[in-house]
Simulated scan of single mutants.
Amino acid sequence: MTDRPCILVPIRVLDGESIPDGVPELLANAYVVLLGYHVVPDQTATGQAKMQFEERANARLDKYESILRDAGATVERRLVFTHDGQKTLDRISDEHDCLAVLVPNGTRPPEEVLVAVRGTAGVSRIAEAVAGLFSSTDVAVTLYHVTETNETDDDIETFLNGVRDRMTELGMDASAVDTRTDTEQKRLGAIATAAEEYDALVMGESDPSLTTFVFGMPAEQIADRFHGPVFVVQREASESS
């Protein structure tokens, strides 16, 4: 059994966002950093907004924290009033050394999760996140790889078997991990299409960036095409530099 993976769950707490159905079950084995944040106009002081809205924001966070704890998660919460949501999210993630951020879209209680993998960078952290979240559950995991023109069948098999072996070392049952490949060259579109058959998606930060998912840019990418929850596993600092 792995240690609980640290997952950042950002909620625009005063803008109608909440914890959707299915998300508490996804996070039952996680250490959740529940970030309630509100982006304040540049002309408004963050301290002023805090005095005006803190009580209402905390009341909502109380409810969301209770929902996550009741599902089994360990929860630490933060409330931030900020002029820059992107910088706040990155800062909180760094401060807590979060393994992944969750875009908390709704889903049914999870049964099948798609895990998009490529190359070797970040794969160990993806395996750590998946095993930590799902090794003690009945969730079935599918490793999904969009092949590149210079890859042979042996290369692909070796790569996917290596990822599966790493997950089993971390506690996953090998029988719960399947593999799937696609030759579609438009990789992000292929992932978005494949993800529609699953309850949640796990992928690396570079596919595209964490902030692309959270803030909805660009519009044609996965965050807009797949409306289920997305775990974006962050790269280590050495990989990001």
Rank of each mutant, 00 (worst) to 15 (best):
P229K: 06
F134H: 00
V115L: 06
P218A: 08
E111F: 05
V214H: 07
T212S: 15
A200R: 00
L14F: 11
V117P: 08
M217G: 04
G72F: 05
D3W: 14
T74F: 14
Q185F: 11
M172V: 08
Y31S: 10
C98H: 06
Q234I: 00
A49K: 13
L35S: 07
L143S: 04
E148H: 10
E55N: 11
T120P: 06
P208Y: 02
V202E: 00
P10N: 04
V230K: 02
K63S: 12
V32E: 03
E54H: 01
G122E: 10
P10D: 06
N58R: 13
L61M: 11
A100K: 08
T211F: 03
E169F: 00
V23F: 03
E151P: 01
D42F: 13
A200T: 05
P5D: 02
E112C: 07
T2M: 12
Y64Q: 13
L68T: 12
M51A: 14
V233A: 07
S18Q: 10
R56G: 13
G72R: 04
D155Q: 04
I67Y: 07
S18L: 10
E157F: 14
A190Q: 04
A100F: 03
R91E: 08
G171C: 09
S240N: 14
V232I: 13
N150I: 09
S209G: 13
P10H: 02
T179H: 07
D182F: 02
A223Q: 09
G204H: 05
D94S: 13
A28K: 07
Y37V: 01
K87C: 09
E65A: 15
G119L: 11
E184Y: 12
V123G: 12
T120L: 15
E95Q: 15
D154N: 05
D155S: 01
L188R: 11
L89P: 08
H83M: 04
A59W: 14
D70P: 09
R108V: 12
E95H: 05
D138Q: 11
G216I: 06
T183L: 08
L114W: 06
G119R: 03
E112G: 06
F226T: 11
G189H: 14
I11P: 00
G47A: 15
T44L: 14
E205R: 01
E76Y: 14
V80F: 01
P208N: 03
T158E: 09
N161L: 12
V103I: 12
P229V: 02
R77F: 04
A176V: 08
A127W: 12
T74R: 14
V130L: 12
R4S: 09
L160G: 02
G228I: 09
E205P: 04
P41R: 02
T44W: 03
V101H: 07
I126F: 09
G22R: 01
I126W: 10
L133G: 00
D138G: 03
D62N: 15
P20E: 07
Q185N: 14
L8M: 01
